[in-house]
Computed example of a mutant assay.
Amino acid sequence: MTQLKTTPLNTVHRALRARMVDFGGWEMPVNYGSQVDEHHAVRSDAGMFDVSHMCILDITGTSARAFLRIALANNVDKLKTPGRGLYSCMLNESGGVIDDLIVYYFADEMFRIVVNASTADKDISWLSRLNAQGSFGVTLMPRDDLAILAVQGQNAGEKVWRAIPTAQQLGASLNYFHAIHVKNTPFGTLMIARTGYTGENGFELIVESSHITVLWKTLLAHGVRPCGLGARDTLRLEAGMNLYGQDMDENVSPLDAGLAWTVDFSENRDFVGSAALRAKGQRAAFMGLLLHKNPQGNPAGILRAHQKILTAHGNGEITSGTFSPSLQQSIAFARVPTNVSVGDTVQVVIRDKLLPARMVTLPFVRYGKPLI
């Protein structure tokens, strides 16, 4: 039996009696008691997630920008200001998604990407091959010495600055999808990024692994609630944010996963997978799905991944589904024929029953407010 990897906070999670699960080969907390309470803590106040299982990769060298220009479907030429971040997919030659990631620009010869834990080895191997094939000569450096905490919620900023007052002057005015490095904090040098995976205000804090336990305990003392993978999943689904391996993978085009906005065809840029995307185009629509309630006003069932959707234009499939704590309704992401429209009523097969649902625009919730 393969031993699970652990983050530097593993003993902290256990001390808090978290329920631990195997998540892509990592032992991670799914909740610390009530997943629903953790979800609401983020929507109404502030919660924190250990995301140190994700892989940080520094890409350096004089050809770093040219390398990422062909490696990513989004265009790193948009990154002109140090600290600016960009969400992108990394594609194979067939236009399928190898991974989705965030890339940060810090200098012409220094970029940082954060990739998913379950795909890290595959991603590094793929990038190494592209580097060698194109003779870019860049250095790919996994930063195993660093760890990540995500602090998310309406009051995340207030509590982060109280916990790290030395960072407030630089970080309080940080724009969305921007990052800074703050030196000489009680936790060493911090990279503070105004990003997240919940649809709320918040930050992702990258710190040396040796300091992350003290940072966690300091945030805890300032009222930031520990949250696990369960709440992270319901939050990201309400916020309309894709999960790699469910909503897209190597056999799914970003155009069919609601991610066309992350693909930059400008200037006829030839990134890996661009020819396939141009040739195939969009073959499916990707949108939200809201299950109708029963006549008593209660949830009629729970939408789950891989359930079949029957429409007037052909069949589709749920890619991610859950019960939304914010809406008190069952919600999902749906990949359906392109002729299906927002507002259409469709049928979902749940336990051999056909239940009605309505196609809606994503996201379902943003900044604590229902949007449907």
Rank of each mutant, 00 (worst) to 15 (best):
F106T: 11
A107R: 12
D108T: 08
D108Q: 03
E109R: 15
M110E: 13
F111Y: 14
I113S: 04
V114N: 07
V114H: 00
V115P: 09
N116V: 12
A117N: 12
T119F: 10
D121T: 09
K122F: 14
D123P: 00
L130P: 00
N131E: 07
F136K: 08
F136L: 05
G137Y: 01
V138D: 05
V138C: 09
L146F: 10
L146Q: 14
A147G: 08
A147T: 07
L149D: 05
L149C: 07
A150L: 02
V151N: 11
G153P: 10
G153F: 08
G153K: 08
G153V: 07
N155W: 00
N155D: 03
A156P: 05
G157I: 05
G157Q: 03
K159T: 01
K159C: 03
V160A: 10
R162G: 06
R162L: 09
A163E: 02
I164S: 06
T166Q: 11
A167C: 09
Q169Y: 11
Q169T: 15
L170S: 01
A172P: 04
L174P: 12
N175T: 02
N175D: 09
Y176I: 11
F177E: 06
H178R: 05
A179D: 00
I180D: 00
N184W: 00
N184H: 01
F187V: 13
F187L: 10
T189V: 14
L190T: 12
L190Y: 06
A193D: 01
R194N: 02
T195I: 08
G196D: 04
Y197V: 06
Y197R: 05
Y197I: 08
T198L: 03
T198E: 01
E200A: 07
N201T: 09
F203C: 06
F203H: 08
F203S: 03
F203Q: 04
L205M: 05
I206E: 13
I206M: 15
V207M: 08
S209L: 08
S209F: 04
S210D: 06
H211E: 07
I212L: 09
V214K: 12
W216G: 11
K217A: 15
T218V: 15
L220M: 14
L220C: 10
A221V: 12
H222W: 13
V224I: 11
V224T: 05
C227M: 07
G230M: 10
G230T: 12
A231H: 11
A231G: 13
R232H: 05
R232D: 06
E238Q: 12
A239W: 10
A239G: 11
A239T: 15
G240Y: 01
M241A: 07
N242Y: 02
N242L: 08
L243W: 06
L243S: 07
Y244C: 04
Y244R: 09
D247P: 12
